[in-house]
Each structure stands twice: as structure tokens, then as C-alpha cells.
Computed example of a mutant assay.
Amino acid sequence: MELVRPADVEAARAALAGVVRETPVTPSRALEGFSHGPVLLKCENLQRTGSFKIRGAYRRIQRLDADERAAGVVAASAGNHAQGVALAAQLLGTRATVFMPAGAPLPKIEATREYGADVELVDSLDDTFAGAEAFAARTGAVLIHPFDHPDIVAGQGTVGLEILEQVPDVATIVVCTGGGGLLSGIAAACVPAGVRVVGAQAAALATWPASLAAGAPTGVAGATIADGIAVSRPGPVTFAHVRALVDEIVTVSEEALARGVLRCLERDKLLVEPAGAAAVAAVAEHPGRWPAPLVAVVSGGNVDPMLLEDIVRRGLVAAGRYAALRVRLTDRPGYLADVLRRVGQAGGNVVDVEHRRLSGAGTTPGTVDVALTLEARGHDHRAAILADLAAAGYEVAAE
């Protein structure tokens, strides 16, 4: 298979002039402690539609002939590709129909409609592809694949060209990956320039390690909070690029993804979705692993506010700053007040208290379980609070 060349990416960039934003690259002091040099964030969360996807979608549709555009386009997506296709179709004067899972974040569904696409909701992500393929066969609409097409790869690769200009001495680029379109494009643009390119994937749905080990695209099962990279199998186009060009693939846990979102929000003042935080999570999980200057691509910022609340809580728990404890104490006046006083003296902030008078297993007459939710300053501080309560004679356990 012929790989996308730097010249193809340059041609895509010329076609995208005036359509996409040249997103900023900003230093991340929060991540420099995990590297031997500067770490910068490429902020594609500030791109039109909130992710890099508009780049590949526009280039793919722009290269259709007049008859193909007249037939319209169709896509399958959990959200970011949907919005990219919808806006690209609107800008290029063609109709777009997008099949999305009914469980996709509501803001992504509504935004896709607002960009002018017809949205068809189906049961699952797998059903979206089946629905889109059937629609294409029935109507003649052109299927715009979310990652597995040379034009998509070339369009996404324009992110890499911008990085080369913005950080001329870049040594490593870390990129989130699901199907591999963005990773393939950046590798096509940047590896010939001598840059190391690393892919970061959610460990809960890590198809790339399995595929590379097998020597062919391989499907895996799983689920992840990073819906933007929740792809169960790469395609032949992206597989060929990743196998030939990408230096390394690493995986990150769900807790690391949550910490990545929280780190971007707190330290870098960026609203980032879990998929967009995968590269940030990888840098933090593998300190000093890659040469600097290092650029972590923040691929998107489309996150459901309800999911964001849960992710932030996960990040706080993973960082030891949010804890749930069970304390068993004597069921007499003053004991609960003593526990709360000790937590306060240790610097903990109690968020919630549940007095479990009928707690059941393990309790004896005259004792009661109290569930505490509290804020701490980190793992060491949390451990110190537990130790202080235990030293005072209370039976305490983390929940």
C-alpha cells in the first residue's frame, strides 16, 4: 500500500487554508516535571467543531467530484467525526447524514444537527457503521470514513505540519490514537523530518498493541471513558502507516485519562475530553521516556458536562484528593463529633457524612458505621488522615 507522503499533507494544507484554524502550541509547566526538557500542548481542542476532525473530513469531501457531492455524504461517529463531516459538508455545499449511537453525548448530537447534518440515532457504535453503509448503498451517498482513507490521513497530518513550524526543534510528538487517522497523518508529515512519533491509546480498548503483534488489524473488546478513541479495530490504511512510521504505542489507564483531563483543566486552563487527554496522560505516566522538546497533541475538547463531572471526580480520586472512608465507632453521643474534629485538625475537608445505623455485616450491638467523603491534598495526606483515625482507636477503611 502506498503511504501518504509529506507532499500529500502539504496539498491538504493548501486546500484547508481559510477553513481550519492554526491552533496554538502552549507550554505546559505541569508536564515539564515529567520530561527532561520543554513540553508543549498542541491545542486542537480549540479547533473549529472542537477537534481536529474537520481537517480530514473537509479534505476528503473537497476531493469528491461533482456527481459524488450531489449524491451527498454519510458518516458514522460517536461525535467528533460527526461534527467535522457536518461542517465540512455545509461549507462545501453538500448534504450530510450522520449515524450516531443513541448514547452519544447530547452536546455532540445537537452540535452535529446545528452544523446542518441529518442525524440518525441507532443502538450502538457498531450499528452506526452498519447503518451508514446501508444508507450509502441505498442512496448513493459517499461514505466518509472516520480514519481509514488517504485523504483523511493527509488532512489530519496538517496538525503535524503546524507543529514543525511552531516548534522547529521538536524531538517527540505524542498523539492519542483510536483508529489511527491523526497518528498516521502526523507520522506521515513529521517522521521524514526526523521527529519521533508516539501513539497513546486507552488500555481498556487497546487494539493497536494486539494488531501490531498480529501483523494485521485485529479487533478487541472493551469500553473506555475516551469515546473519541473508542475504536475496536484499525483499518488497513492506518495500520500500514502506523506499522511503517510510528516509533511506539503506549497505553494509559482510565484513571490516568481522568487525571489528564483534570491536569489540563486545573494547570493548563484547557477544557479537554478524555480522548484529547490521552497524550497528556501518557507523558505523565512515562516520565522521562522520550526526548524533548516534546509536543502532546490535545486532540479535542467536546465533553458532556455530566460526564465531565464524573471524570473530574475520578481524577480527584486517582490523585488522592477525594476519598471515601468507612469509620466504625461506638454508637454514643460525641463519637461522630470526635471523628469530624480529627479529620478537620488533620487538614481534611468533609464533603459528605452518612450515618449508617443499620450497616449490617460486621457490626456489633452498640457500634455504627459512618461513611465519610472528604477532600485531601494528595495520597500522602489521605493516608495520614486514615492513620490518625486508626491511632485514635477507630476502625477505618477506604471505600
Rank of each mutant, 00 (worst) to 15 (best):
A292P: 02
A30Q: 05
A319S: 15
L125Q: 14
Q166T: 09
P287H: 12
F52A: 09
L316T: 03
T172D: 02
L205G: 07
A284G: 09
A96F: 02
A376T: 15
G344T: 11
V298N: 07
G288K: 09
P287V: 08
V122Y: 10
T97N: 05
A204S: 15
R55L: 08
A15Y: 00
R267K: 15
R341P: 06
R63Y: 00
N349M: 07
P236E: 15
V297Q: 07
V170G: 10
R60E: 00
Q47P: 13
L106E: 14
Q166N: 07
F135K: 10
E375M: 01
Q345F: 11
Q47H: 12
K269D: 13
E120D: 14
L92Q: 12
L374D: 01
E395Q: 15
A318L: 09
V396D: 01
S211N: 03
V396M: 04
V170I: 10
R342P: 03
L161I: 05
E273R: 00
R63C: 12
A206P: 06
P192T: 05
L262D: 04
T207K: 15
G334D: 04
E162L: 02
R382A: 15
A223G: 14
D352I: 03
I186L: 15
N349G: 12
V195D: 00
A15E: 14
T172I: 01
R341M: 11
